[in-house]
Design a protein around this nucleic acid. Sequence first.
DNA 1: GTGAAAGCGCTAACAT
DNA 2: ATGTTAGCGCTTTCAC
Lengths: 339, 339
Amino acid sequence: VAGQRSRRSNGAVTILTVAQRAGVSVATVSRVMNGIETVAPELVVRVRAAAAELGYRPNAAAQGLARGSLRSVGVVVPNLANPYFYELLKVIEQRAREDDYRMLVADASEDGAEEYAICEWLCAQVDAIVLCSPRMTDDELARLHTLGTHLVITNRPGEHVGIPSVLVDAAEAVEQLGELVRGHGHRRMHYLAGPSQSWATRERLRLLERLKGISVEVVPSGGSIADGYAAVSEAVVERATVIVGFNDLAALGAMARLAELDVEVPEGISVVGFDDIPFSRYFGPPLTSIRNSHGELGRIAWELVLTQMRAERVPDGSVALPSTLMVRASVGRARRSIP
Amino acid sequence: VAGQRSRRSNGAVTILTVAQRAGVSVATVSRVMNGIETVAPELVVRVRAAAAELGYRPNAAAQGLARGSLRSVGVVVPNLANPYFYELLKVIEQRAREDDYRMLVADASEDGAEEYAICEWLCAQVDAIVLCSPRMTDDELARLHTLGTHLVITNRPGEHVGIPSVLVDAAEAVEQLGELVRGHGHRRMHYLAGPSQSWATRERLRLLERLKGISVEVVPSGGSIADGYAAVSEAVVERATVIVGFNDLAALGAMARLAELDVEVPEGISVVGFDDIPFSRYFGPPLTSIRNSHGELGRIAWELVLTQMRAERVPDGSVALPSTLMVRASVGRARRSIP
DNA sequence: GTGAAAGCGCTAACAT
DNA sequence: ATGTTAGCGCTTTCAC
């Protein structure tokens, strides 16, 4: 078997090089590299030695083509600059790598249409896509589903479009929050609404509105510190007794703004967030927040990916993770009487 | 040209399917898909139509094998859970995607050896690797370099091992910081040192130690909020007049701890950070910090990657980005006399 | 247990 | 301008 020159062939070490060096066929090298047992121990040793000497690394594209899979997951997030997703990404990457998958990350810039376009681009090159808090429409979600890639959604239900999802059930924690603030004499909440396409912002509002004896006023805001900061207008300061941020970032921004306006928290106004990001407990005052484990979210998302790829079937329904109310100093007794 | 069945062939739409549907050869389809001009306009239309009807998406593995490149960059970070890297990741991903490259992300868990292992694994599947604040040794860096992958380093010099790098030159900003704190009557700094393998932690210490008329005491700490929080012992509170965190996270943690100990900032102790992450200006009090643009870092990193891949040569030396001292309320007059 | 060889889907040289 | 075809490096069937 003579080595053949070709136009593109650079000096790369291929499976053939290894085979020649070890004095075996490429098939044997392939078997050894893939841990197939039916190879004579002596040959295994020879092949391993040859591969090591030559510094052989299998070519991912060639493997991908031959095997029909590049062994990779795409993870699409609305905004990479949002700390919200870090733990999720971290866990998915770790788990994926343990299973010998690579993680491709893409940032959709909070834009549903771009998000869809990215997924369409991605789905030909990965085995599955994890859609984190997708902003695209249900229609687009469904359309994506027909493209055939394995899909998993986080932070948004997907049953109705046939996509497995993992999300957080904040119902109980919100109930507790209701009791807490009611007990402190609050009768009204100001909710800093997040990105409009976000399912979580609507879901959280829905839960808050279910609270007996408490009315909710919606203040358009967003999911960043700057958004929370900007949302706290004088009108809000005038009327609010509790401000509930769409997420911790918004709540923290609101607190920063309140400090600037010399409104004390919680003496003047109480503040609450969602997510309980690590920052929140270090703030002054520490933020009361509804915690949910993004690590757990990531773990389950990867499991759903695996199940789907292995079983060739879609795991049913959505997984709901519990959340807990973390009570901290940012909530206190209502200062004013109810108008 | 009859479609041929094979063992693995699933119902996938390949370039051949498109060619048959459009009544042309695969070469023509390939030309159209790759935007090669020498195709008759009419055929272009037919091919595009056929591809659209069939929902054809080129197979990334096959393209990668045929072209000799999967068009992807690996980005390796010490810890994905650290907000520090997100703007960097965001920019690299955006730029890379514009140039039709995918971004693979891997997390080295602050472990130099694992970092090296990841890079070795990665380098067979990507065109280049961006090493963010690498923790591995210079030896490992050099060894990696011999593996032949294109490499770019951020936040650590690489000239001496032949790897282009982009880093932040904080010298001037630190000088300004020296003047600022000296002007406030401080004569000593407590430096919360970051991860020991981090180049930045040593570099920042070096710059601080050059300051005339100011002595530096090193307090082992780390790069997270919790690290900064934990580093502020009673002994530190006793002696310190200014605390300089390795980064903003550590500084913020220190401030949180000080608040808990009823030490006012800056009246009791002044606090300074590095990086100026978005959070810092919203803290109470807003943190004085040395800003450097991670977006810019990412932009240059990607440029270095491109230069290297296009020119088949290593761009020379390291690029140093300027940084600015952002003076905020966390720094004030020294409370105590100098012992 | 081992090897020869047929693809995997695409690109690009070469021929027309 | 378009088609034919030889690879790219690997996996896997099939025959020995």
